[in-house]
Design a protein around this nucleic acid. Sequence first.
RNA 1: GGGGACGUGGCGAAAUAGGUAGACGCAGCGGACUUAAAAUCCGUUGGAGCGAUCCGUGCGGGUUCAAGUCCCGCCGUCCCUACCA
Length: 861
Amino acid sequence: MAARYNHREVEPRQRARWDQAKLFEAGTPDPSRPKCYVLEMFPYPSGRIHIGHVRNYAMGDVIARRRRAAGDQVLHPMGWDAFGLPAENAARERGAHPGEWTRDNINTMRTQLQQLGFALDWTREFATCDPSYYRHQQSMFLDFLAAGLVYRKKSKVNWDPVENTVLANEQVVDGRGWRSGALVEQRYLEQWMFAITRFGQELVEALDELTGWPEKVRTMQSNWIGRSEGLKFSFDFDVATPSPVAGGLEVYTTRPDTLFGASFAAISVDHPIALALAEGHTDLAEFCADCRRAGTSEEAVETQEKRGFDTGLRVVHPFDASQTLPVWIANFVLMDYGTGAVFACPAHDQRDLDFARKYNLSVLPVVLPEGAEPEAMVITHTAYVGAGTIFNSGFLDGLTIDAAKAVAINKMEALGQGKRTVNFRLRDWGISRQRYWGSPIPIIHCQNCGPVGVPVEQLPVTLPEDVSFDRPGNPLDHHPSWKHVACPKCGTPALRETDTLDTFVDSSWYWARFCGQPENQPTDLEAVKHWLPVDHYIGGVEHAILHLLYSRFFARAMKSVGHQPYSEPFTRLFTQGMVTHATYKTQNGVWLSPSEVEERDGVWVDREFGQPVTIGAIEKMSKSKRNTVDPEEIIDTYGADVARLFVLSDSPPERDVEWSQSGVEGSWRFIQKVWAAYDALPEDAPGPLTTATVAQGPALELRRAGHKAVAAITAAIDSYRFNSAIAHIHELVGHIRRAETLEAPHMLEARAEVLGILARVMQPFTPHLSEEAWTRLGGDGFCAQAPWPHPDPALLIDTTLIMPVQVNGKKRGELVLEKGMPRDEIEALALKCPDAQPFLVGQNVAKVIVVPDRIINIVTG
RNA sequence: GGGGACGUGGCGAAAUAGGUAGACGCAGCGGACUUAAAAUCCGUUGGAGCGAUCCGUGCGGGUUCAAGUCCCGCCGUCCCUACCA
């Protein structure tokens, strides 16, 4: 009787062997082998791992193990994105110190990840909250400061009133904080900024080269950076209506070709001119205040009505001094894009048209669609934004749009009134956060010297341990002594910067620190040169903009100050789908986890109290909504291999999956079946690296199946089609099991060979089982170190093949043919194919299509 | 408003140079073993029909010997983005 495969005994034993042999340590750079850096986005230590983590890290592990077997020197590290708000929330809620809470979580999650048998180099583990990590982040901040990549600016910031902190633009979603969901307010604060726009051009251009990234992510980044080419120019004010501030009215436009269709100019409510006019002009001031309120809080900007206020000022048309345009304050003009002022051409811009119709402003079409008559070109309620020829436009008449843009810009430049300008939607990255649990910003503010960097030899600036969270705001600011220090320059009493760095900074360069961790430098230059860029970066698509853009910026910034040599950090990016689950809420609005609810008589109730619960949306597993599923039960009941295999089995990895445990038993049964196949092999069978010598018969067929499976599985893994790879593994196991009962020459050899192959191709998915099987087969060393099997090309080609015979495109029969048979012979056989005969009698055969090795189609008529 | 993805059995899904639609798995059904059950194994499972056969990849057209795949036009779902001048 076959022995059951006992994961409880096997898995810890095999993991101990790997650990003892230090199998997954990357080691020092070995120039004799190709390197492969496989990285999954490191986790935030929120408490315990959930199924989503298992899926993410199982994918990376498949790639890492496959590359190692292929002969690459693999770096596959793990660490912790350990700073962040939840730790402070935990501190406020239950009085635990954020550091302690974080450390506990890390310990728990590390144990869980280790139980899953991931081939990780744990010697390189670090957490971003380690002073030995953020120390270097602080020194790089100072490097960037010296290089002009960091600056300080009083700026309008997005203030999250619930979290009491500033948010980056990227962290504001629909006017709400990305985490709290609270309506964001506008405040003015002194902020440290990273000059990410310095690299705007590069960041968008280099996207074309990132062919290993999904098109979708590249498009999203490109849209976010939002490069546009246009003209910046200045209107002179009409002498009759002088501006309250010096200079002309500067505007930015991408449509200088439509300048002759200008009907008015519009400025933002926050434009300096508007602010100046608001002094002593109550109506106007009230209008602006009103717009600001609606402006930032309205989700449905689309439905928001266009509103304006005529300033009474007029500006002179730059190409026609006899013409002046009114200047309006308009709620649809954004102060922080372009110059905060626009000229409006209602005929060819829908927003401008809506505004013009509402306030009875002129509408003059200047672009004529091809074939249209100038008199027939009437704009009513829809602006014309298509192609055409310029008319009604003086010296631009008759030109195409593109030509007219060029001519208009040249003319403006010749007049000295404007300049060709590239504009970006991307803004600089505000990195100051009024938070405790983050990396301190290494700056001391001195009354005499201004902001002074903390001398490098005094780094790290560490967080004080004795902080209290009993009142809102920043505990660093409340701390009695921490911020009081002497100025490093002049020695007079000064104040430490109490803001900490946005935690996105922490995750923007951790990939470089994994390469090597020198004590006195952020990076080991030899090591980063060898290991970077990351070859396979795997993580959620939700980071398509924020994290990935920041990391691309950091790569460039670090390159410019000499900390690593590459512009792009990630060669290949794979965005895996999310694991989702329904959410549950009690009548009182408390979130419940899936394990706390159950279905009773068709109604979902709280397991403990029996109260009905509301089933909410199906969402990404997250701790805040409590819809996580802990893999522990599955690991305990079925084993780590089953958990790994199951999460990769059915769905394509890039697709979201709604979690369901149904089917996990199938994976468990499969593993038992695989073990039975090894167990069925006699003890005296040859080893796993056998090549069976067999010319024909069932043993040859088994070898063919094995080698074809290797080809298919390898191709599937290498293109991230893990679900397909597993399907092919299933098929191969089917072949092996069916062959067990066959008596044929060389069968034992063939079985040993194919079982040896099976262990190695399953190793990335089910490493413990494979290792045990390897030992069972009498293999030397570790399966995890065995070379990836290479299919024998001769076995991939069938000597006979089954070709379907179609009549008029419908399959009517099959022929078994020798490979490479001449076309006319195939044709003759096809016409005699018995199953096809009923469809051919009395028919005239018009032609016979023979696609070699694929299909035959007999066409009648 | 802009951009993108997708639509195939009861379910998750295969089919990535146009070439046997539904691989592989889940669930189901039938059977074997068992006093019985579990476990395991075998068979079966797109729909209609006793059958030969017919119909089937969201809908309507088209190209082709041949379309899930290519083209045109719809419908639907989801994601991202959003007054960016």
